[in-house]
Amino acid sequence: MSGTASELLDFLRRRVTGQYDVDEFGFDPELTDKVLLELIRPLYRHWFRVETVGMDNVPGDSGALVVANHSGTVPLDALMLQVALHDDHPRRRAVRLLGADLVYQLPVLGHLSRKTGHTLACREDADRLLRKGELVGVFPEGFKGVGKPFSERYRLQRFGRGGFVASAIRAGVPIIPCAIVGAEEIYPKIGDLRFLARALGLPYLPVTPFFPWLGPLGLVPLPSKWVIGFGEPIRTDEFTPSDADDPMLVFNLTDQVREVIQQQLNELRLRRGHAFPPLF
């Protein structure tokens, strides 16, 4: 008990005197593990009861690119993916997620996102992280995925320009297809306040059965049951780095990844069953 108390004191002293390291992207592993992830762990364990499948497909110490579907109106799926790879992977991997530049313009969110190891979705940052052997995570659907209406749940949106595939080819790292089931039901988006969203410079402003009607209470995510599945790695090491400049090859591989994830989604959704098991 005294051990933990002195650990806590050490931790506090390090934090107060600034004697800790952040990497060049601003990632603060200690703050992330001890504070930020700790705050969302109850959500992960008890609220969404996240289950992981196929974690052995994620390499232990080498670079890889996790490609996942994006959904849920509010991108909680990114945070849950981060907890999953940290807590449920035997090597406790810190996934480095690539986010939209909107995040980095906003106060608080921008620097919290950097401190938890995320960075801007751009070629330079992706290549740099993969070169360093980091586990990088992307959501190629972007806002199209996370902001899609409830009626389109579990239907993958378009996969951008396939920049993520090109990055994986350049670095010669495997692509790990990842399906996240459960996020679709947390904030069922049934409407969009487009006019207000445009005025606020946001990609969308959702209306859910509870928001904005219930005010702050409407911000509580629904306690759906989640499953996060990691599929078999798609190898890219048989290509040469210059193949990343072959648009045909990149498009084909992008499509292949997309199909694999869609199939994974369908399977995991069946396996999970009802979104709210104790209720329905």
Binding site: E124, D125, R128
Partner: peptide
């Protein structure tokens, strides 16, 4: 800027 890569190389 929030739109730039996290780390600048000389040719960025």
């Amino acid at each position: 800027s929030p739109h730039d890569p996290a780390v600048f190389a000389e040719d960025t």
